[in-house]
Computed example of a mutant assay.
Amino acid sequence: MTKDYPIGTTVWQELEVPGTDGLGAFYRAVLGWELALDGDRGRFLLDGELVAGLVVRPGLPAARTGWRSYLGAENLDAAVKRAVAAGSAVRTADKPIGVPGKAAELTDPFGAWFGLAETEPGAAVLPSPEIGRWAFVDPSNFDLASEVAFQDALFPGQHADDREGVITIFRDENGLALRGSYEIHEEARAFLPPHWLPWISVADQREATEIAVAHGGRANTVDNVLTFAVWGVVADPQGAEFKVLQMTKNAI
């Protein structure tokens, strides 16, 4: 059965952290999100609409703290099998997430955590270029050719578009941008391991980085230029990183 989401795009995203100190004020100031907590789980809302989830795991190590991106599969079991055959390892086979459906959490061949999901009709929380919305995700690692080969095996029939130079974008047969990939520069590899990095749309990426710092986070970089956007990278008070993306064109 055809899904109501583009296969290979993110259909759910959630933040895993050891605690919640500073998060409510931070995400409200930087992205306009409101955090609603319910025990060890939570929801981020933008104008009352669900945009992401939160999972609190006391004692979670810094290396595991961060955003999880779940890519939508046509068939979850088949997608997991393709991922494993291409070098992934399954960490949680039946992973509960914040929307109806089923999911699995894996590490890719480079050791970075990501998810696959098959959500029920109408449940997917899809990327959007609108301000304050999750826009994109890129798996970053040390070998772009190997990443492209992995993505080709994970979602056959989609193609890599390297017109941006610094980032390769994976598209479906209609040209829709689904996710990206970035090769980490050699000088940064000693302190920046492979990871999946979310992009979240903001009106002004420089202002967003300044607000992030003022509310207990940090700014890693700012004023990076693509043909369609300018971006920076910030971390929240718990250390979870994401790109603040200022779109300069209507589409990726």
Rank of each mutant, 00 (worst) to 15 (best):
D77S: 07
L71W: 15
L50Q: 06
A29P: 00
A62P: 10
L35V: 04
D47N: 13
A29W: 03
L35S: 01
G32Y: 08
G22T: 13
A73G: 08
A73P: 03
G32V: 03
L50K: 02
A36T: 09
L31W: 14
P58N: 08
L37S: 08
D21N: 12
A36P: 00
P18W: 00
S69H: 08
R43V: 08
A73H: 06
L50G: 06
T20Q: 09
W12D: 08
N75E: 15
E49Q: 15
W12I: 03
R28G: 09
L71D: 12
G66Q: 07
L60F: 13
L60W: 09
L37G: 10
Q13C: 10
G39D: 10
Y70F: 11
V56K: 08
G19H: 15
L71F: 15
A79C: 12
T9K: 11
Q13M: 11
L60G: 14
G22P: 13
Y27K: 02
R43L: 08
A25R: 04
E16S: 15
A36H: 12
L35A: 06
A52G: 02
V55I: 11
G48E: 11
F26T: 04
E14H: 09
S69K: 02
F44H: 03
L46C: 01
L45W: 05
L71H: 12
R28D: 12
G48C: 13
L23E: 05
L54W: 00
R43F: 05
T65M: 02
V11E: 07
V30Q: 07
G8Q: 01
G66N: 12
R68L: 12
V51K: 00
T65W: 00
G53C: 04
E74Q: 11
D38W: 06
A52H: 02
E14A: 02
L71A: 11
P61F: 02
